[in-house]
Design a protein around this nucleic acid. Structure first.
Lengths: 240, 240
DNA sequence: ACCTGAACACCGTTCAAGT
DNA sequence: ACCTGAACACCGTTCAAGT
C-alpha cells in the first residue's frame, strides 16, 4: 500500500488482475477480439507489456476472465424470484442481449468448455431445472441440453454480429444478407434452406431463441412421466 | 495443361484450390489449428507462401473451405433412406464423431454462421423436419433449434478435446478432470454443478448428445397440435 | 497467368535489468 | 516483489520481380 507512492500520487491504483481484466473488457468492446493486445493493454494501463504477465498467465487467461466477468453479472441480474420457467427464459435473454452487445463473449464461451463461465450458466440453469421438478436422473440431460442450445445460439450470434461489424453494416442488415444469400442457392440441392429464407427475414431472432427454449421445455414436460417415474422404478428394481 | 510441364514432370499436379484445401486438412489434423500456417502449407506444397493467395482469399477462407469439405462428406454419409427421426440422429452422430476426430471442425463451425458448412447442416436437418410432418410455420423453429443444439455441442466438444490434446491427455481423461474440478467447487454457490459432477463421470457424452436430440424431438411431437393445426387455422382466419 | 520469396507490420511471450 | 522495455520467434499478407 505504502510502497506504490508514485502511482498513488499519479491518482492511479497499482496494477492488479482486476484492473487488467477491466481494461481488457474496454478494449474488447471498442475493438473486438483483435482489439485486445498486450501492447494496447500496456499502453492503456501506462505500463510495460511484460508487467501484465505478473498478474495474468497469458492471453487465454485474460479472455477467459473477461468473459467470466460478463457472464457473472448477467447471471446476477437474471436471478429473479419468479417461476423456474421464467427464470430460465430470463437467463437466456440476459445472455442473448449480452452477446448482442459484446460478440466476443459468445466467441469465448464456445472455447471455455467446462470452465468458470459455462459452469456459472450450468449452475443457474440447473437450479431452475431442479425447481421445475425434473427427476434427478434427468437433470443433467435437461440442463445440458438447454446449456448447449444457448451456447450454440451464442456462437452463431457472435459470428453474425462480428461479421456485420467487420463489413460496417448493422446486425439486422447482416441477417438480411444471409437471407439473400440463401435464396440464391441451387433450387434442387437446397430446397429447404431456400424455402426458409423468406421466413428468416421477417423473424426476430430474439423471439426465435426463446421459442427454442420453450420447445425444449415442452419436451421436458412431455417426457416427464417416462423420464422420471419409470426410470426411478427401474432404478429401484435394479438396486433390489 | 501443357504449360506446367515442369511440375507435371515432377509428378505433381499444378497448384489448385482443391489441393490447397486438402493439404490444409492434413495440417489441421496433425497439428491442430495452430498447425495450419501459410509457411507450413507452402512447404508441404513445395511452393512460395504468396502463391497460395492466388487460389485462396485468406486464412479464414482456407479454414472455412476445409471445414466445409468435412461437413459435406459427413452429410453425404448420413443420407440414408431411413425414417426422419433416425436420419436426424445419423446426422448428429456423424457430426459428433467427425468433431471428435477433428476438433478444429467444431471450432470453425461456430465461426461460420450462415455460411456453407452450417447451411449444409441446416438443409440436411430441415429436410428431415419436413419429412417428420412438422407444419410449415414451425419448420424453421424446429430445424434451427436442432441446428443450434448440435453446434453448441460441437463447440464444447471441440474445446474439450483441444484442451485434452494440449495437455497430452486422452479425451475421456479430460472429462474426468472436469468432473474433478466441479466436485471441488464451493458447496453453497455451486450445489447443482457439484451434485451433477459424479453423474458426468459415468456418462457417455455421445449418448448424452443423442438424448438431447431426442428431448427436442419429443418437444416437437408434444407441441405438434398447437404448433401446426391451430396456427394454420389462425393464419387462415387472418388471410380471410 | 501464375509463381517466387523477401519484406512489412504486426503478434504473444520471455527475460535481463532495474527499483 | 514488482515493473520495464528491448528482444525473440513467430504470424498473415503484400508485392516487386521473375517465367
Amino acid at each position: 500500500m505504502v510502497k506504490n507512492t508514485r502511482r498513488v500520487q499519479r491518482g492511479e491504483e497499482s496494477l492488479s488482475r482486476e484492473r487488467i481484466v477491466e481494461a481488457s473488457i474496454a478494449l474488447l468492446d471498442s475493438g473486438g477480439e483483435s482489439g485486445l493486445t498486450f501492447r494496447a493493454l500496456a499502453e492503456r494501463l501506462a505500463t510495460g507489456a511484460g508487467a501484465l504477465y505478473f498478474h495474468v498467465a497469458n492471453k487465454n487467461d485474460l479472455l477467459h476472465a473477461a468473459c467470466d466477468a460478463v457472464v457473472a453479472s448477467v447471471m446476477a441480474a437474471a436471478a429473479t424470484g419468479a417461476a423456474p420457467r421464467e427464470n430460465i427464459r430470463a437467463i437466456g435473454i440476459g445472455m442473448f442481449d449480452a452477446i448482442d452487445a459484446r460478440p466476443w463473449v459468445g466467441a469465448e464461451l464456445t472455447r471455455a468448455a467446462g470452465k468458470m463461465p459455462t459452469v456459472r450458466l450450468l449452475e443457474g440453469i440447473g437450479r431452475q431445472v431442479v425447481a421445475l421438478g425434473v427427476a434427478q436422473q434427468a437433470q443433467w440431460l435437461v440442463a445440458s441440453t438447454l446449456l448447449n442450445y444457448i451456447l450454440g445460439v451464442a456462437g452463431q450470434n457472435a459470428a453474425n454480429t462480428a461479421a456485420a461489424m467487420a463489413t460496417g453494416a448493422v446486425r439486422s442488415h447482416a441477417l438480411a444478407a444471409v437471407a439473400a444469400d440463401w435464396s440464391q442457392l441451387a433450387a434442387d440441392e437446397y430446397s429447404f434452406t431456400r424455402s426458409i429464407a423468406g421466413q428468416l427475414r421477417e423473424h426476430d431472432d430474439r423471439e426465435d431463441f426463446l421459442a427454442g427454449i420453450d420447445l425444449i421445455l415442452e419436451g421436458v414436460a412431455a417426457s416427464r412421466p417416462s423420464v422420471t417415474s419409470s426410470r426411478q422404478a427401474a432404478a429401484r428394481k435394479a438396486s433390489t
